[in-house]
Design a protein around this nucleic acid. Sequence first.
DNA 1: ACCTGAACACCGTTCAAGT
DNA 2: ACCTGAACACCGTTCAAGT
Lengths: 217, 217
Amino acid sequence: MSNRMDRQKPKPYHHGDLRHALIQAGLQLLTEGSAASLDLRKVARKVGVSHSASYYHFPDKQSFLAALNEEGFHRLAQAIQDALNNVPDTPFEQLQGITRAYLLFAQAHPWLMREMFSGLTIEREAFSSLYAASKEVYRFYVEVVKRGQEQGKVIDGHPCELASVLWSLLHGAAMLLIEHQMRPYADGPTGVERMVRLCTQTLYTGLGREEQGSSEC
Amino acid sequence: MSNRMDRQKPKPYHHGDLRHALIQAGLQLLTEGSAASLDLRKVARKVGVSHSASYYHFPDKQSFLAALNEEGFHRLAQAIQDALNNVPDTPFEQLQGITRAYLLFAQAHPWLMREMFSGLTIEREAFSSLYAASKEVYRFYVEVVKRGQEQGKVIDGHPCELASVLWSLLHGAAMLLIEHQMRPYADGPTGVERMVRLCTQTLYTGLGREEQGSSEC
DNA sequence: ACCTGAACACCGTTCAAGT
DNA sequence: ACCTGAACACCGTTCAAGT
């Protein structure tokens, strides 16, 4: 995304592109999971640079975390995009694809997801580009709802509102999943797939039913 | 819950029931919202006690936070209980009641909710009583699903699985709500009520529809 | 323009010592 | 049994100084 390596890496003094390296190291630490909350000095150490160096690129820790979150949203959006591209253009399949992408992403990057959505470490409102990145994800939900409505397969209603409900279910499922709050049926890859089907089905047809007759299943 | 004040508050040396006072002060700081992440020394200061005093009651910060979370889950369970008691015994009403209780609780105690579900500050597995407290909340979902099934108003399926989906939607909605991720239609009390209806409706009848004919609404 | 090193305030945790 | 005070390691942030 950033255009900093188009020059042939002059490596002028100590580090060619420190800002980028810091973010990368931060994401790395996040995947290693050692991060209760990211530690600026540890990140600097990992990059092999003085701890005060980062202050040239980020005014404070919160800004650094915001940059991490932003990258996280970009990757999440990419994952969703890829999933939608590899799935038939029917509302149900799209819904299922987006659900699967979301849950698998969360399972693959639990600490990143926690960082992105904890609400503890940064005020999202204060960082407009971060807000934009999160909207990027949100847009997919709106798109899926809209296309479903055009095909007459999704109920009427303001697409943004319905998209919010959709996101809510995916997000809640993702978070409870990585907090191991829905064991044992959601452990491992097969468990996730089971959860995907459950969520999709619920989103599509709901939990209630009209007919009172009992049916076996 | 703890039986420490049945003696007539002897106030023996400096503080009669420090453990309880620390938790109370922590919850207080959480409601004041100044808490990016709780600060043991600040809590001690608020209680008017030395910062090392808390280490007699909690082995470390994480244990203290676990106690806070536990209290949070108890309060959440209580709020849900109250809501269910004041609502007709039909599955739809119960679903709506539980949804409303969850969202209102989150809106009233955003920092507590973030703390409880961030997953950043404590490992929930390590604290069995905390785990039990969260199950206390989970049980309500299972109950609602089961009763709905008994009345033939909820689809077949393992109650725990369906309850997980239910919790997912509520939880995601609550978190996105307090992160202001679903503005503008969910600001203020009327906005929350709108969200409650949306979530309940979606849970009950889903987003999809079979009939292709267009209907105005 | 970009980075280092020393310095400061502050937090989590420990431990010997107080009542 | 319950609490204090000094002490230590470590983090976020600043600032004068280096290249």
